[in-house]
Simulated scan of single mutants.
Amino acid sequence: MSQATQSRTGGPGGQGRGGGGQRRPRREPEEEVWIPKTILGKKVAAGEITSIEDIISQGLRIQEAGIIKKLLPDLKSEVVDVGIIQKMTSNGQSTRFKAIVAAGNENGYLGIGQGKSKQMRIAIEKATNQAMLNVNPIKLGCGSWECRCDQKHSVPFKIKGKGGSVTIEIIPAPRGLGLVAGGKIKRLLELAGLKDAWTTAKGSTPTMNSTSKAILACLRQTFSQG
């Protein structure tokens, strides 16, 4: 093998450039440190407020996603739906992306948010931040007359909520039945912490913007009325 060939291949072993073919270690994204900016955020960071229920009982408004991350470190976020918004302007066709994200800990908390941007990644980030700010506590229980147990596997009573043209009703079910619901509706209920329930839906349920609002309106009633 000639010297020119060896220089291109990195030597007789053919390891290539970069010191024997070793790849650079992938840098993990650094977690952003939350610096509270509001009075409520400073109280949460100082440990004066330790639950979302305390915030709601005092009638305070959550304006920082860091508050939710601090109080609910086990919160998960999932992209529920994405789409494209196209609009004709004087400069031509404008294209934007929209995303709907749900945040829940599968144990009594759920929030849903929507974001729009010219970039999909930014739209998802906006929706995730909005979902964090919209997190609400949900009262779980067993409202089924067939079960009558003391475990928190369903809703405590029948609830109905509306979002746009969509109306959703959630009915308590006995333990072991599972969630009788469509794919995306079922996943939202799982994020909220429900394990057993019957559901009925009316309207244009493929429109996830209205459907997610209807589900959140349903589940909010368990805390406000329970």
Score class of each variant (00 low, 15 high):
Ile100Leu: 01
Lys116Thr: 11
Ser90Trp: 02
Lys87Asp: 10
Ala127Trp: 00
Ile124Pro: 06
Leu133Ile: 05
Val80Lys: 03
Thr95Lys: 14
Leu75Met: 14
Lys139Asp: 05
Glu78Ala: 00
Ser144Trp: 00
Leu75Lys: 04
Thr95Val: 14
Asn129Cys: 05
Ser94Ala: 08
Ser94Arg: 12
Ala103Ser: 15
Leu71Phe: 04
Asn91Phe: 07
Ala99Tyr: 01
Thr95Arg: 11
Met132Glu: 12
Asn105Lys: 01
Asn107Met: 13
Ile84Asn: 07
Leu110Glu: 13
Arg121Phe: 11
Ser144Ala: 03
Leu133Ala: 03
Glu125Gly: 12
Leu140Trp: 01
Leu140Pro: 00
Ile112Leu: 09
Lys76Pro: 10
Gln151Tyr: 13
Gly141Asn: 06
Lys69Leu: 11
His153Gly: 05
Ser77Cys: 08
Lys158Asn: 04
Phe157Ser: 01
Lys69Val: 05
Ser77Ala: 14
Gly113Phe: 01
Lys69Asp: 12
Pro137Lys: 07
Cys142Val: 01
Ile85Val: 14
Gln130His: 13
Gly141Ser: 03
Val79Ala: 10
Leu75Pro: 11
Ile67Glu: 15
Ser144Met: 00
Lys118Pro: 15
Asp81Asn: 08
Ile84Lys: 10
Gly104Tyr: 01
Asn129Leu: 13
Val135Gly: 04
Lys70His: 14
Ile84His: 08
Gly113Tyr: 03
Val135Tyr: 05
Ser90Lys: 12
Tyr109Cys: 12
Leu72Asp: 02
Thr89Gly: 00
Val82Ala: 01
